[in-house]
Design a protein around this nucleic acid. Sequence first.
RNA 1: GCGCCUGUAGCUCAGCUGGAUAGAGCACCGGACUUCUAAUCCGGCGGUCGCAGGUUCGAAUCCUGCCAGGCGCGCCA
Length: 580
Amino acid sequence: MTIHEVIRREIHKHLEQYGLFDGDIEVDLEKPRDRSHGDLSTNIAMVCAKRLSRKPRELAGELAAKLMFDRAVVASVEIAGPGFINFRIAREHQRNLLLELWHGEGAIEAIKTGGGKRINVEYISANPTGPLNVVSARAGAFGSTLVRLLDAVGYDAHGEYYVNDAGRQVKLLGASLRARTMEMLGQAAEFPEDGYKGRYITRMAEELLHLDSKAILEQANVFNDESFHRVTAPAGTADDWMQLPEEESVRRFSKYALMKILTWQRTTCRRFGLRFDTWYFESELHETKRVERALEQLRKNGHVYEQDEATWFRSTTFGDEKDRVIVRSDGIPTYFLADVAYHFHKFQRGFEHAIDFLGPDHHGHIARMEGAMKALGVPDGWLEVQILQQVNFVEDGRPMDMSKREGQFVSMDALCDDVGADVAKYIFLTRKPNSHLDFDLDMAREQSNENPVYYVKYAHARICSVLRKAAEAGISVEDVTEKGLNGLQEEPEWALVGELIRLPETIADAAVAREPHRLTAYAHEVASLYHYFYHHCTILGDDLIVTMARLQLCQATRAVLAHVLELLGVEAPEFMGEKE
RNA sequence: GCGCCUGUAGCUCAGCUGGAUAGAGCACCGGACUUCUAAUCCGGCGGUCGCAGGUUCGAAUCCUGCCAGGCGCGCCA
């Protein structure tokens, strides 16, 4: 039984004397903002005051006097302010919680309520038509952290990348590359309208002209894992491809460009610390006839009709504002239908829940997709859509155009070059998903050395340094023990302990709310309390008992920081060089 | 016009699901290294929480209406 439950139960017991029963009224316990108000606080007296026609503070005093606790768990009960009842957790109990945490028992186990349920988290879905941009960076930071959070609370989370390689854009990409290549050879080439004008295409063409057929084939060798079995190199050389009839020629160039860009995208993801369990290719949906089968299923369930030579999904049945075309009048299925097939396949693959991360420009898709899932018999609530607001990049005081087609966008790689992956991730992860973020690149560059992430990293490195120093002096502290923690006496020490034991609930809250930014806030708080402790308490002192106690506290703090940083996908360094 | 999101310190953002004196980082000012790493610590400056009503013991937080900004409302993806 957690301390929250102990306190709640005791309060409920006494509330019954006032005719208020469990289920009738809820006892909220929260951590007071001001530490001097104790460790936990409830407003129950104020909530009940009116119903009982009593003065809140008087009722609080009366109730508080009746509460009986094991002094080894709840050390004190006080009333304060307009009628709060504040509780102080006994140090002995805090110590026990920290020991449990250290051993990976207790609350950190109790939050694993997922029951091994398989959850699919699709957090990047991109056209393979250019380098990944910073929109994917934010999604990547969020998604990868959410996957780790879900695992931490007992789910079997699965990170997925959806490659939109089937549409017209890939053809357009190939045509763009072909045109650039021909231009380079001085041949007349018409650059496609709406083609991709980015410089990366020109550079790709340049490189391509220097490759013989063997070198081209070898480029595909980087894709040796199962997810990428579909990505292969086209046979021949650029010269060969240009001799072919246009359609086939474009196809070769597309195949090549796709391979190159996926190589970049995957490299970028790795650099950013993103690991995907699956890269799912849209083209596979078409080849395996899943798109057709999804259509048949929808039709069978009576949600499809023909009009104006097109095929429509009656999404209005499910609350969408209008019906949607799923097969165009030219016979080509829409992107939406493929997406329906994709999500249906996710369901068929055995995921009990699916989370999609979408940009705000796609929020209109939610209703129709949810409708389609319902139409296919997928349970309500199976699909969860998280909207991640747009990031506006600002440089020289003005917002940057993010159009990929025009080739002017901030790439994820450029972001890593500028500020580093850890800094970028941390900045994204201090914001909640709904925030419309203005990312000032100039400031980020300047601050990259003066950033909150270093505050946390430094705390970790500092602990490692102290532990090294202790080892040099012949004091080695590997474990955290009951006896050791009993040597803690000072207020800064216990403030730190009090924060460390909040790790499990912080993880659970962040996972449930899908709000990874709670982790960065927590990490900052722990780091802050450690720095405070460090300055007020000499760790390596003359009193061996105190020294041992403080070293153990260091060990525990280091473990907590490392744990949180790992969840955030940020490196926890053992050394930190001098700044500048 | 309709829908989604947002509006908190000079800037970028938190505010733990309605609590006590609204916080952090950056910027600015002033202190602390002969010491376990000063990428730190201590102090200061700075806010009609967009505006106006409402709900109640209590509102940055919930409701309504305005104002401002972002995004969306294709047989594009």
